[in-house]
């Protein structure tokens, strides 16, 4: 692959470094630390290609980029350490959001995170789990696909659907839109339908498309 424009130098520190300048490959072992711009990745071992600017770090890896921190068993880095693929008990924390899963892909440039399987995202408003989760962290937005389950103790809400999108912005108007076999329980009231919109701050729900059913539990 053509060598990407190296905007800032990469520094790699370790106990031992093997470097093959013909291949441009560095193998580092022991207290490895890779720094480039605002990205800092630490681990036990690393392989880094100075030509493609791609690397793989293993062994209790921590990757920090601005206010995002990833911990995982292994992290692969691409695009000058701005696109990370983490695997093995991955935890990505950024601001008030915490994403976990067996594998997490994170782009620092676009602040987009993808959990392709068994994803979970913990937001100030509650927790969403789903087969797949995509988080648009700069917009405070997250989408769950496949067996979505949203739980919000603070809102006394429990909802399921095929897909769901959480909107945290604008502040004070956060909402969740549930699509496909949507079912929401809030304060004991149950609403089912094809598409449900739950306005978290206003404690209101409405249903669109297809038949919907509301069961109200008297106080």
């Amino acid at each position: 692959a053509p060598r990407p424009e190296a905007k800032t130098p990469v520094e790699l520190v370790a106990d031992t470094i093997d470097y093959d300048s013909k291949q441009g490959v560095i193998n580092a072992t022991g207290t490895v630390r890779i720094t480039q711009g605002e990205a800092v990745i630490t681990g036990a071992k690393a392989e880094y290609n100075t030509n493609s600017q791609e690397g793989r770090i293993t062994g209790g890896v921590t990757a920090v980029n601005q206010d995002a921190t990833i911990t995982a068993a292994e992290v692969e880095t691409y695009k000058n350490n701005t696109y990370l693929i983490a695997s093995g008990d991955v935890v990505l924390t950024k601001g008030e959001n915490r994403l976990t899963g067996p594998r997490v892909e994170y782009s620092a440039d676009t602040q987009y995170a993808l959990i392709p399987q068994n994803g979970k995202i913990e937001l100030p408003d509650g927790t969403m789990t789903a087969d797949k989760i995509e988080a648009f962290l700069s917009e405070n937005r997250a989408t769950g696909t496949g067996f979505v389950h949203v739980v919000s103790p603070v809102r006394k809400l429990d909802a399921t659907a095929n897909t769901a999108t959480y909107y945290g912005e604008p502040k004070g108007q956060s909402k969740v839109i549930l699509n496909g076999n949507a079912r929401a329980i809030q304060d004991g009231n149950v609403l089912t339908g094809e598409t449900l919109t739950i306005r978290l701050d206003e404690k209101a729900m409405d249903s669109q498309g297809g038949r919907s059913k509301l069961v109200i539990t008297p106080k």
């Binding site: 990469v10 031992t16 093997d18 560095i26 580092a28």
Partner: peptide
């Protein structure tokens, strides 16, 4: 082809 041991550091690119 080199092997560096002890406080090994590489600065590259940029």
């Amino acid at each position: 082809i080199v092997k560096v041991q002890g406080n090994a550091k590489v600065v590259t690119g940029g």
